[in-house]
C-alpha cells in the first residue's frame, strides 16, 4: 500500500497551537515525547496498564500510549508541563505532591498528577473514596498511595480556596 501524504495534526498542547505533518502511526505519547520533546509524560508499559502516560484531552484523562496522535485533532491536550500556576509557579497539585511525600521514584508521578487534575476538573471537592477510584488506573510501586491521597486532598483545598484555577 503506498504511503499517502502525512496527515496534519492540529491541536492545542498546553495552551499552544500545534500544527504539523506527522506519521499517523505515532501514538500521542510518541508525539508528545518524541516530536514536542515534552518528556514529562512517561511510558511504563505501553499498554494502558500502568497509567504513567496519562494526559488530559478535552478535560478527560487518557492513556497517551494507546491514543493515536491523530485522534487529538482539534482537541486540547494538557500534559504535566502544562500544569503551571500563576507566574510559572508550580501548580498546587505539583507543589502538594512534593510537600506531602507523594513522590518517591517519580516515574508514576506525572501521570498520577494528570489523573488527579482531571478528577478535580470534574469534581473540585472529591471524597477520599472518589480520589482512590479516580487514581485506580495509575500504579505507584513506591509510596503505598497514602501520601498521594493526602496531596490530592490538600491541592483540592488550595484550588477551592482560590476559586478553581
Amino acid at each position: 500500500m503506498k504511503k499517502t501524504a502525512a496527515p496534519m495534526l492540529k491541536c492545542v498542547v498546553n495552551g499552544v497551537k500545534v500544527s504539523r505533518a506527522i506519521d499517523s502511526g505515532l501514538t500521542l505519547s510518541d508525539f508528545l515525547r518524541g516530536e514536542l520533546h515534552l518528556t514529562g509524560t512517561k511510558t511504563g508499559c505501553n499498554q494502558g496498564e500502568c497509567g504513567a502516560c496519562v494526559v488530559v484531552v478535552d478535560g478527560k484523562a487518557v492513556n497517551s500510549c494507546l491514543y493515536m496522535a491523530v485522534q487529538a485533532n482539534g482537541k486540547k491536550v494538557i500534559t504535566i508541563e502544562g500544569l503551571k500556576g500563576k507566574n510559572g509557579d508550580p501548580h498546587p497539585l505539583v507543589q502538594a505532591f512534593a510537600d506531602e511525600g507523594a513522590v518517591q521514584c517519580g516515574f508514576c508521578t506525572p501521570g498520577m498528577i494528570m489523573s488527579a487534575y482531571a478528577l478535580l476538573l470534574a469534581n473540585p471537592a472529591p471524597s477520599r473514596a472518589e480520589i482512590k477510584q479516580a487514581l485506580s488506573g495509575n500504579i505507584c510501586r513506591c509510596t503505598g498511595y497514602e501520601m498521594i491521597f493526602s496531596a490530592v486532598e490538600k491541592a483540592a483545598g488550595l484550588l477551592r480556596g482560590r476559586g478553581g484555577k
Binding site: 494502558g48 497509567g51 496519562v54 478527560k60 484523562a61 487518557v62 492513556n63 494507546l66 491514543y67 489523573s115 482531571a118 477510584q133 479516580a134 487514581l135 485506580s136 488506573g137 495509575n138
Partner: peptide
C-alpha cells in the same frame, strides 16, 4: 470497566 483513563477511551 477497566480503569478511569481507559474508560475515557
Amino acid at each position: 470497566f477497566a480503569s478511569p483513563p481507559l474508560r475515557n477511551m
